[in-house]
Computed example of a mutant assay.
Amino acid sequence: MIRGCIKTITCGKKLSRNTKHSNTSNTGNSNRHLPVYAKVAYILGLRVSPSHRRMGIGLKLVHRMEAWFRDNGAEYSYMATENDNLASVKLFTDKCGYTKFRTPSILVNPVFAHRLTLSPKVKIIHLTPSQAETIYRRRFATTEFFPRDIDAVLNNKLSIGTFLAVPDSATWQGTDHFLSDPPKSWAILSIWNSKELFTLQVRGASRVKRTLAKTTRVVDKALPFLRLPSFPDFFRPFGFHFMYGIGGEGPEAVKMVKSLCDFAHNVAKERDCGAVVTEVSGQEPLRFGIPHWKMLSCPEDLWCIKRLGEDYSDGSVGDWTKSPPRISIFVDPREV
């Protein structure tokens, strides 16, 4: 079985003609540059029954899917897999002509039995989908993989909300005022309810490990004021929330992101989730504000890409498959 989709996303940026000769702008970098969009296909999943592997079925499925991509005008195709999944990597890079493209990090943080205390120096504002769309388009539209239909993402029933962190002394006077005169430091984050789609489960753990994990939860629940980290019950089916659209600016942006992640943890706790997950670029400076457990996270996921047609114009960014990694990427929660 194979699944795929096609969407229009940002693959680069170009200088706006209106500001090419201007050295200043009061509305941020996204006004000096415009996004360069491409119609890109994504292979959501490839599964072959163990009894039918090594028979060329996976290769045929990929070729059939790519034919559908081309028929519908896709310029590129990309997929994600674990870096150590050698069979998958070999299939796509050796047999299907894909190139290793990006290596983002998947960061996983467990949800504890106690609530996290939020910084009193940070104010968190719940944005409407319209307000969130305006900020994302004005500030992050040139981010690689930014979806052109961001409004559809934010208005999706699985999107719990978008939250903006600003200094406690700041006042919210609407998006126009925020964009024209933002505080020195701020951060933004959206939450996606992946729990409604599927659950995960860890199997094969020994009885000793299960007992130790349960003990940490019992202590955390009985003595929440100690704020001890506890290991959730991952040995039964559990759901998670996915944080996406993480961004920010200013010298305190990392701390703002930390406050937003703590807030997202508490939202996940209220909804009985086992973990909070996100995926960011390996070069993302804001990742230092994202709490996570190394034992649960993946430092290098692997995205591979392929150009589907040589007859396409190179456009403003040339052949995207040959472009160097950028600092940030936008991970679409619909692909999680």
Rank of each mutant, 00 (worst) to 15 (best):
R210T: 04
S259Y: 00
P35H: 10
K221Q: 12
R139V: 09
R47L: 03
L15Y: 11
A187Y: 01
S16T: 07
S49E: 09
Y42T: 01
S259W: 00
F238N: 01
I135E: 02
T171L: 13
D84Y: 06
P104T: 12
T216Y: 05
L200A: 02
K157W: 00
R137N: 03
A132F: 09
V276G: 11
L197W: 00
C11A: 11
P224T: 15
K195P: 00
D149L: 03
M256E: 02
E144D: 03
T81I: 03
Y244E: 01
V219R: 07
P129K: 09
F263C: 14
R70T: 02
S206L: 11
L164P: 07
R334S: 07
F242R: 04
R138T: 12
V89W: 02
K100S: 15
R137C: 06
V336C: 11
I150T: 04
V276K: 10
M65V: 12
Q131T: 02
L44Y: 03
G239Y: 01
K269L: 15
P325M: 09
P229Q: 08
R307F: 13
K157A: 02
S25T: 14
M65Y: 06
S194G: 00
F225L: 05
F92L: 04
K7W: 10
M295S: 06
C304V: 11
R207A: 14
I57M: 14
W172Y: 05
E279L: 08
F112T: 12
D272H: 13
F69H: 11
T162N: 04
R326F: 10
F330W: 12
G97I: 04
K255E: 08
G73T: 04
Y136L: 09
V331T: 14
A268G: 12
R139E: 13
P291N: 12
N31E: 13
I2T: 14
N266Q: 15
G97R: 03
S22F: 07
R203A: 12
D314A: 04
H33M: 14
E66M: 15
K209Q: 11
R64L: 15
G289D: 03
V62P: 14
V122H: 10
S206K: 09
L302T: 11
A67F: 05
R115G: 02
F101I: 00
S25R: 10
T27K: 13
L34M: 14
E196C: 00
N31Y: 12
R207N: 13
F231K: 04
V89Q: 01
R102Y: 11
C273R: 13
M256C: 01
L189E: 00
L154K: 05
L200E: 00
R236T: 05
V122N: 07
E75S: 03
K214F: 10
L212I: 07
A268I: 13
F263G: 15
I124K: 07
G250H: 06
I6R: 12
S25I: 14
V336E: 07
A205S: 08
G309N: 13
D151H: 09
F69E: 08
A222R: 13
H114D: 11
L212P: 03
I9C: 12
Y78W: 14
S105C: 07
D233M: 03
G45M: 02
G45D: 05
F140W: 12
F240N: 10
A222Y: 10
N18Y: 08
P285Q: 01
V36I: 11
E284F: 07
E82H: 04
E133T: 03
M79C: 10
